[in-house]
């Protein structure tokens, strides 16, 4: 456990409301996410936790019927301000999905693609260095260094997920969003990703959506419980799982409803 916690707020949502057509998916979400910490979002399916993290990199912009009110601030700046460049925002806020989704390209190209389109790494040498560093930080380098030209899809599920993490961190983001990153993985691959998350939080701010309470306990410092589009309780992970103040949180985490 860290002895010194940097509690600087990296992400802040203010009265965030999200609608899909007529249906309201999130209600007045006010949530603060600390820098260099892992924040876990838990709650039953359809409670709005994935909708919430998709607001942090404006992924919901691509859904026509999706409308939002309120603010999300990163470093005190509203990311929904008209002047914000969404491409730059997504460079800053990387995302890892439930199912590993490498591009149908080589391992090398999977990692070098982002830096190339964002203009990071001018020369081949620069890119080589970025690919190596990213794969090392994603704890995958030793397993793939001799087969960088092989397709990303040739890797195992756990390796593919670490490749996606390498791809996400290759553009030097500040925040990584993870939407159930281990739900398709076996326990060993899950353990490797969790170990990686612990390492990555030293550099990045991580928000993880998970259905595994045990995973939330293992990887996060702060936990938010969502239910029916509302944040029911937020607290340190230790407090939420040992002694939640809200009965609904307690009923959910102890398996009394879901």
């Amino acid at each position: 456990m860290d002895l010194i916690m940097d509690n600087k707020i990296k992400i802040k949502s203010n009265n965030l409301n999200v609608f899909y057509g007529q249906k309201q998916a999130l209600f007045d979400i006010n949530l603060e996410i600390n820098q260099n910490e892992v924040t876990a979002l838990i709650g039953p399916s359809g409670c709005g936790k994935s909708t919430f993290i998709r607001c942090i990199n404006r992924m919901n912009d691509v859904i026509d019927i999706c409308r939002m009110e309120g603010q999300i601030q990163i470093d005190d700046k509203n990311i929904y301000d008209p002047g914000v460049d969404v491409v730059q925002l997504r460079e800053k806020v990387g995302m890892v999905f439930q199912k590993p989704n490498p591009f149908p390209k080589s391992i090398y190209e999977n990692v070098s693609y982002g830096p190339k389109i964002h203009g990071i790494g001018e020369s081949k040498d620069d890119l080589d260095q970025i690919v190596e560093n990213s794969l090392k930080r994603a704890a995958l380098w030793n397993e793939v260094k001799d087969r960088l030209e092989e397709p990303g899809t040739s890797l195992s599920g756990g390796q593919q997920q670490r490749l996606c993490i390498a791809r996400a961190i290759s553009v030097n983001p500040e925040i990584i969003l993870m939407d159930e990153p281990c739900s398709a993985l076996d326990p060993i691959a899950t353990a490797k990703i969790e170990e990686l998350i612990d390492e990555l939080k030293k550099t990045f701010t991580i928000v993880i959506v998970t259905h595994s309470m045990a995973q939330a306990v293992r990887v996060s410092q702060k936990t938010g419980f969502f239910h029916m589009g509302k944040v029911i309780e937020v607290g340190t992970t230790e407090q939420i799982f040992k002694n939640p103040t809200n009965n609904m949180t307690q009923d959910y985490i102890t398996g009394r409803f879901g």
């Binding site: 309470m213 799982f241 040992k242 939640p244 102890t254 398996g255």
Partner: peptide, 9 residues
């Protein structure tokens, strides 16, 4: 069961 909260207590 990996009990939590009240069940753990």
């Amino acid at each position: 069961r990996a009990p939590m909260a009240i069940d753990l207590r």
